[in-house]
Design a protein around this nucleic acid. Structure first.
Lengths: 196, 196
DNA sequence: ATTATAGTATACCGATCTGTCTACTTTTTT
DNA sequence: AAAAAAGTAGACAGATCGGTATACTATAAT
């Protein structure tokens, strides 16, 4: 009877819990999903959950981190074939087009940006969950910066494109989500390419 | 003892309830806010709430409609001084800049787009609340179309600008919300003006 | 093979949720 | 002034919430 909490993060049950919780949170929001629903769909006992996480809050935090990890891995990979400014733009918006049209299994059924939706439910700046959401978007920004540096040496010019890409990316997500415009990524790609 | 439900929509108590509910929903999301919290902050009795609304769901629907009304009124007014494509762009992003920097009282403390956040909590297409959120964004699109028609006669050219404005507007909202970039509207304005 | 560990299933706790009900008071209408 | 309508305060019901405890089972390590 150890009762020492930190069970291995590689545990199969832990992954199951996060996987199902992420899908439910992503589909209905966080406050709308109860522990019991997560347990029922993941087929895990309640005690097992509380052996891995001290609270629902801890599970939520793990979900946010896992979502960031999955998203960044997928997005980095999608950008890997870029070898110029224009091709990076193509990669970015082709990837977004795949996502909003439900062709990316690892991201689940598209329901807007998980981090935007989650930040809206945890709006206090000092909240850890909110901070993780901010961090994710900064990771995206850093990715754009890093990937564009080889092709655009002028910092101001590069920063301007980074800002445009960030704005258009977020625009694509919202327009696809709440205007049901599944072509938004294609439109944004055209606009971004016209800019450069 | 009438028990016939539809009390006048002009009722002071009804407005109080919607007003406080909107602020709480906007700040924490909908599922995170309970009826009792709304009653406590609005200073209204529980029975009065249920005299005006058959359920929490009905109150939520009224809130979404009220938010749309407030937003459209404010946004229309902000666009009224525009007399050219360029000045409309200025009006739009100046308005957004005011909003995300908490200088628009009627919209309350900025916490991203209420309709995006709400749609994320009610993701089923057949859900009335979700449909109201979609409707709002279509209202915005129609506004752009209508306001640009006098200045851009070519339909394709006009549609392209409408799409750009929609993408940038949503981008501004998300970047301000979850990247904490309160300059996003200014940046978007520059980019939009460069496009035309 | 024994033993600690991690798991299941489920009852239970106190708190909170939406919604109803009663008793009373204030406001409005006639 | 009387009556109808709309309000308050709060107890209450039944369900569900997050989280704990108990009893038992399967797995894995020594």
């Amino acid at each position: 009877m150890s009762e020492t909490l930190p069970l291995p993060k590689t545990s199969k049950k832990r992954k199951q819990l996060i996987d199902h919780a992420l899908r439910l949170f992503g589909q209905h929001g966080i406050h709308a999903v109860g522990i019991n629903e997560i347990l029922a769909t993941s087929g895990v006992a309640k005690k097992t959950l509380y052996n891995h996480f001290v609270s629902k809050e801890a599970l939520i935090q793990a979900c946010v981190l896992e979502r960031d990890s999955r998203f960044m891995t997928w997005f980095e990979q999608a950008c890997d074939k870029a070898d110029s400014t224009a091709s990076l733009i193509e990669c970015v918006f082709d990837a977004l087009d795949n996502w909003v049209n439900d062709r990316v299994d690892i991201l689940g059924h598209f329901n807007g940006c998980f981090f935007v939706n989650t930040a809206a439910e945890y709006s206090k700046q000092e909240c850890v969950i909110y901070q993780h959401c901010i961090q994710h978007k900064n990771n995206i920004k850093a990715l754009f910066q890093l990937r564009l540096t080889p092709y655009i040496s002028d910092e101001i010019q590069r920063n301007n494109l980074v800002e445009l890409l960030l704005l258009l990316k977020e625009g694509v997500i919202n327009c696809a989500h709440v205007m049901n415009d599944k072509q938004s990524a294609v439109k944004a790609k055209t606009l971004a390419l016209a800019y450069v």
